[in-house]
Design a protein around this nucleic acid. Structure first.
Lengths: 192, 192
DNA sequence: TATAAAACCGACCGTCGGTTTGTTTTACAA
DNA sequence: TTGTAAAACAAACCGACGGTCGGTTTTATA
């Protein structure tokens, strides 16, 4: 005998876990709800009681994965001195985080292709841009860089970092050096 | 009485045109083959004689749109002097090209969501990276910038430009200034 | 003019996400 | 304890859609 809360939570996490591993090994389209449900011995009705759609499940997984990677990266640079240096280090740390195959597969393949690239991007942005803008604003306050458009600047960093991750993913080559230079270049262009 | 070549070419372009406009107004998933076929009075068999799948049609459209935008952008900077300056101008020109709603919709929405982001990216890269790398190599030869990794550098430029385009798309704000600075920053970081 | 091959037709099929209807389990108040 | 409401789950069912397949018409060629 279990409380409803427990039952519900268990089933929910059960679903997420099973879908996650199925998505990872077969991709979104090739993963049928039926397959997953059979695996964990659950019914369609139960699943649709917890999630409105198959897409909503990817959304949950994508958000969790995105948040996880970013927070781990941010946590790893908490006590560094300058905001700009922190920012750069966080970017480099993030490229390391997403070298984990499962993470990159969800962030760069499953998510975008299932939610649509815009939607995925907007979810990702909502999570990451806050952190980046915060540090950028600090840097601006201190006078490390010029104001301009912090949001677009944050997006630039995001883009450079994502591009590097994708590049590393494809070529199996570590490219932090070039990324480092590029980030510093962008900063340099905005120094007062 | 028409030659087979003519018949074939006509039907093919007919299909592409109809699918293009349907995709633009309803998106990929919501566009059923049946709807499009009814519109132009063609059969499913005919369509599947010309294309292996619905996806293959988007692929053709995406490639054409991508190539078009890039080539228009490149053409607009042919006679500028320095390779690096040409490169920058081409990037700025491209952001102007993709301000056309139909172009951006196909390049940033339909294509990636239908082909999957990786596939779309690889198609886009194949088209654009050639141009960018060529100019970068020239710049390196002349000594305008340091060697390092021209391919990744080209990807960076691509990413910055795409990011700007997306940003402009969302905010309806022209951001060539910041992009200009960022590009110059990246260049500056690589000056000998 | 015979024959091959390309272009085209449209009924049909399997799959799969999602819905609906009904059953079981938990919560809670009287 | 019992009655009842609501949450959790089951499973049959639906409709839409992409894609297939056998066959017909049109063009090419020898």
């Amino acid at each position: 005998m279990a409380t409803q809360r427990q039952r519900s939570e268990f089933t929910r996490s059960q679903l997420l876990k099973a879908f996650r591993s199925a998505f990872l090994s077969r991709g979104f389209d090739a993963t049928t709800t039926q397959y997953v449900l059979t695996q964990i011995g659950l019914s369609k009705g139960a699943m649709y009681h917890h999630f409105r759609s198959k897409t909503e499940i990817v959304e949950a997984l994508y958000e969790e994965e995105s948040r996880g990677a970013i927070e781990r990266a941010m946590r790893s640079v908490r006590q560094t001195a300058s905001p700009l240096e922190q920012l750069k280090q966080a970017c480099l740390a993030w490229t390391r985080e997403v070298r984990v195959p499962e993470v990159s597969k969800i962030l760069f393949e499953i998510g975008p292709s299932a939610l649509g690239p815009q939607k995925a991007k907007s979810v990702e942005d909502e999570i990451s841009l806050g952190y980046l803008e915060e540090l950028l604003s600090q840097a601006i306050r201190i006078g490390e860089i010029d104001a301009r458009d912090p949001r677009l600047l944050a997006k630039f960093l995001n883009a450079l970092v994502a591009e590097t991750a994708l590049y590393e993913l494809r070529t199996k080559k570590v490219s932090t050096g070039v990324l480092n230079d590029a980030i510093e270049g962008v900063f340099a262009a905005l120094r007062p």
